[in-house]
């Protein structure tokens, strides 16, 4: 931090200090919220004000996680869900962008497909669940298909919108310099849609977890969704809560892996 050696004026130093104080206050309250929430939860279940059988408690969740970790199954469940989500996320994002490019390329195809895209977008994909199981069988495959279905249509629609919202004069400019359609695509349309692509990535992180958990609810032998389902059927709310906590950690981690891209590209 070289620039710290510059002598700032008093008012500027004051301003910087204010910014810093504000940041500390925010972090302080963020800690208060989580500690308060967990503390209250622990207290209420410990004193019996809420039934720990139905509501579990932070200490029981930690215990459950340790226990699951010791029996070894925990990592299998986490890995299964993570693997399904990442694969579904990648397939849906890549396929969605490719289809969007295709639809951008051919205006006629776009117009033909438009009503079907709208219907597919409003259709709750979970309704297709039983069919997916019949076609690809239950397990990891079905979950990935569900995950892809949930992310795919929204990716196509968002990316297509980004592509066709490109300023027409910019396209004319490219044409006046004799650009062919490939050049317009690679030198203008795609870089122009980069910030929309990053938004799509962020949305898809969330959506792919929805897909994975839904897929695992429907039919699975492993995964956090399976564990949640299993826990609730066995009336072991500790397992349910522990799975949700782990899910939060994984989904949050994946989101934070995408966000550096946003910082890097969204400003330009």
């Amino acid at each position: 931090m070289k620039h710290k050696q510059i002598n700032y004026s008093k008012t500027h130093a004051k301003y910087l200090k204010k910014l810093k104080t504000e940041k500390i206050i925010i972090i302080f309250w963020q800690i208060v919220v989580i500690v308060g929430f967990l503390g209250l939860w622990e207290l209420l279940s410990g004193t019996g004000a809420i039934d720990p059988f139905f509501f579990s408690s932070p200490s029981r969740i930690v215990q459950t996680i340790i226990e699951l970790g010791r029996t070894g199954n925990l990592f299998i469940h986490m890995w299964t869900s993570l693997y399904e989500t990442i694969l579904g996320f990648l397939i849906a994002t890549i396929l969605g962008v490719l289809i969007a490019i295709l639809l951008w390329w051919s205006e006629r195809l776009r117009k033909v497909m438009e009503p079907y895209l709208i219907i597919l977008n409003s259709l709750p994909k979970i309704a297709l669940g039983p069919m997916i199981i019949l076609w690809v069988g239950s397990g990891t495959g079905a979950t990935i298909v569900m995950c892809v279905l949930i992310c795919l249509v929204i990716t196509i629609i968002s990316m297509l919108n980004a592509f066709i919202s490109c300023d027409n004069d910019k396209i004319l400019l490219m044409k006046s310099m004799h650009a062919n359609k490939f050049q317009i695509l690679f030198k203008l349309i795609l870089p122009n849609a980069l910030s929309d692509f990053i938004s799509v990535l962020k949305i898809n992180v969330g959506m792919s977890w929805v897909g994975t958990i839904m897929g695992e609810y429907l039919s699975s032998k492993a995964g956090l969704g399976y564990l949640i389902n299993y826990g609730s059927q066995m009336l072991q709310l500790d397992i349910v809560m522990a799975s949700i906590v782990l899910l939060c950690i994984l989904a949050g981690g994946m989101y934070f892996m995408v966000s550096p891209f946003e910082k890097k590209y969204k400003r330009s």
Binding site: D167, D169, K170, L173, K187, L188, P191, N192, L194, S268
Partner: peptide, 8 residues
Amino acid sequence: QRDHLFEW
């Protein structure tokens, strides 16, 4: 009318 420089 506008410069249409590519920001990237």
